[in-house]
Amino acid sequence: MSALYECRDLVQRYAGREALRLPELTVDAGEVLALTGPNGCGKSTLLRLLAFLERPASGLLRYAGGAEPRQEVTLLLQDAYLMRCSVFANVTLGLRLRHQRQDLRAIYEECMRAVGFAAPGELAGRDRRALSGGERQRVALAARLALRPRVLLLDEPTASVDARSARAIVDAVRDCVRRGTTVICATHDRALMAALAAREVALGRRWDESESAAASAPPAGAGGAA
């Protein structure tokens, strides 16, 4: 596998305070990575850097994908935000931003079923206010799946949802992994890590990737068993 991301001496600061220090990290294409560590150790910051939402204060962050990384990489925030429009419009928003107008209904149905909605048609016209927290998170994930991203970044995707929603999210991400999507997930959820057979990278202490990797599950190149 070739390295998709390469980070070296990556540092991020907010208002002078160091939020992340990462000596080295390499992520191969198609790999599944679980970022772990205590609150405030920089997991979300690292995901934001990998999603190109912000630039690092210093260090190297190299992406070996296309020239427009934001068109290939997508991030699901921990507390996902839905726009003030219908569920259908939210799920297909990314496609419409890419000026895709065809097959929107079919893609919507497919992605909504992938995140565990049995009757997507009934939800299509619903406003975001009518959704529970778990449903919002799954709709937001469906919007990312609709893009068929090369890299899917997830920030604690199962942290604030019920068990049923968490299961649906895990299943949807596993499908993504099977299709060869690179998945990097910040999580405390051991079950999620096991289900995705993710390589664990622990942040927030003297960083040693090989040590962390040795203690974690093997890479998910073969698809990841539950």
Binding site: R48, F52, L53, V73, L75, A80, M83, A140, R144
Partner: peptide, 9 residues
């Protein structure tokens, strides 16, 4: 909102 839009490309 802005971050969501950016992550959707």
């Amino acid at each position: 909102c802005r971050e969501t839009l950016l992550t959707l490309g």
